Amino acid sequence: MAREEAAPKGALDRALEILEVLTMRGKATTAELVEAVGVSRSAVYRLVERLEAAEYLTLSDGQWRLGPAAARMAMAAVQNMDVLAVAPPILRELAHRTGETVSLGVHSGDEMVFVFREIGHQAVHVRSELGARRPLHATSVGKAYLAGLSPERCEETVARLPMQIFTKSTVTDRDLLREAVGEARLRGWAEEHGEFDAGSTCFGAPVFDQSGAVTAAISIAGPTARMDAARDPFGPLVAETAAAISHRLGYSDRTKPQQH
């Protein structure tokens, strides 16, 4: 079958590219826009003039920036981006793909509260009832949330946790918890091996909003024997899913606060 050729780019495509460049860079000269978009200077001039007239761009000190119309559009988008509105279809796909129980948790006090759950076709009873509260230190969803915090906020939170024992595998040493959270931050997901429910293994990852702040965490859980024997590694899968949700919420790597 012959490969379908991409349609040539029109003025709308070029205008969107200009808006994307300024979204990422913050500001750019006309020459920089010409280089980034790859069209003639005259074509860029026509586009930016139209965008300026509609208040999507503004010119200051020889550099273009996003204008008030773009700001209004961004604010309207943010107001309609709620993790409970965005996450469920993506989490259902993960549950369908893996057959295991997938959950979404939000932070409340020193715990996480499950606000969405999708049970996969392989799932047996897993202790993740909707509305249930889970400790930060003994669950993948809790450790994932901690990993998404700034180091300062994370340390403040870890220092005050009660560190309750739930199973013989529950980690109650704060230094070991700090190590686990640090590992989760580096690799992109947290793990729980029988720490809250002795028979289950869970993987969790943080979800970030448009400001770069952690706003929730997701997890995938199942019986330890089946999770260990799975063909696809669950850690990268849950991290990939959390990243997709974060992207839908307006998050990009450049908005995340720097970790020191």
Rank of each mutant, 00 (worst) to 15 (best):
G235E: 12
D228E: 08
P236Y: 11
A217I: 05
I220G: 07
A239C: 12
E240Q: 15
Q210H: 15
S219F: 06
E240C: 15
I218P: 00
A217Y: 02
G235A: 07
G235C: 04
A239H: 13
P236Q: 10
F234C: 11
S219Y: 07
G222Q: 02
P223A: 13
A230M: 13
S211I: 00
E240N: 15
L237W: 10
M227R: 13
D232I: 09
P233H: 07
D232C: 04
L237A: 14
T215L: 11
S219P: 09
A225L: 11
A239T: 13
F234P: 05
P236E: 12
A239I: 14
A230V: 02
G212H: 03
I220S: 10
D232T: 13
G212V: 03
T215H: 03
A221G: 06
T215K: 05
V214R: 05
I218T: 02
T241Y: 04
D232H: 13
A221Y: 00
A225Q: 09
Q210A: 14
G222A: 10
T215Y: 03
S219G: 15
A229V: 10
S211P: 00
L237Q: 13
R231T: 08
A217R: 01
A221C: 14
A221R: 00
E240P: 14
A213Y: 02
P233E: 11
A230S: 13
A217P: 09
G235P: 04
A213L: 10
L237N: 07
T241Q: 02
G222I: 02
Q210N: 10
A213W: 02
G235W: 04
R226N: 01
I220L: 15
F234W: 13
A213G: 05
G212C: 06
I220A: 10
V214K: 03
R226T: 01
A239Y: 11
A239F: 13
M227K: 07
V238Q: 07
P223M: 14
A230E: 09
Q210W: 15
G222T: 01
R231Q: 09
T241K: 02
I220D: 05
T224R: 15
R226S: 02
F234H: 15
T224S: 12
